[in-house]
Simulated scan of single mutants.
Amino acid sequence: MTKDEVLAVFREAGALLEGHFILSSGRRSGFFIQKMRVFESPARTEKLCRALAEKIVARYGKVDVVVSPAIGGIVPGYEIARALGARALFVEREDGDFQLRRGFAIEPGDKVLVIEDIITTGLSARECINSLADQPGTIIGAACLIDRSAGKADLGVPLVALCEFAVPDYDPRELPPELAALPPVKPGSRGIQGAKA
């Protein structure tokens, strides 16, 4: 899939929003990708994840285990694991840190791929990778549907993205006037429904 085709899927789902958004990093942006609007459609999700799975195989070869950070990475992680014929695990926070729970385990010799939905700074992907350091498998890389950093996020492992969509983000003290004029909305809050899709 081309970048335009990927973004078209997000637009069709009403998932590419414009406004003034507070990102999870605390930075601000004029665009927000509400990926759960895509994930509510199994057909859209499968289409994107199959396309990413093809890129994953071309880059990494066989993958035994896919691990995703909860919550945002669970749906694409599962769907990509299904396309790859791999196991789908996820890490979740316990006492503030990601951990494998629920009896999940990685076996010796497993080739492990970390899957994220969207990467901006790469923080949650790095935390996910670091949480697997004591597991016996080998982390071969990471993949995401959209890389908002346009290749700048450093995960410590190679990254494959279905689409790079570089969107400027700003320190809240250094907003451009057009963004400062809009009321900020934290994604996931009720106010996000008033954003222009």
Rank of each mutant, 00 (worst) to 15 (best):
T2W: 13
K3N: 14
E5W: 09
A8E: 13
V9D: 11
A15L: 04
H20I: 04
L23N: 05
G26P: 01
R27V: 14
S29K: 05
I33D: 11
Q34F: 13
F39S: 13
T45E: 09
K47T: 12
C49H: 10
C49Y: 09
C49M: 10
R50G: 06
R50N: 11
A53T: 01
E54A: 09
E54G: 07
V63H: 05
G72M: 09
G73S: 06
G73N: 09
P76D: 05
Y78S: 14
Y78P: 12
L84Y: 00
A86N: 07
D95I: 13
D95H: 15
G96C: 09
G96P: 08
L100R: 01
L100V: 01
R101D: 06
L113A: 03
L113W: 02
L113Q: 03
E116I: 06
D117T: 07
T121S: 07
L123V: 13
S124G: 10
R126F: 08
E127T: 11
N130L: 15
G137H: 01
I139E: 01
I140K: 05
A143I: 02
L145K: 08
L145E: 08
I146F: 06
D147G: 12
D154A: 15
C163A: 02
F165L: 13
P172Q: 12
R173M: 14
P177V: 10
G194E: 08
A197M: 13
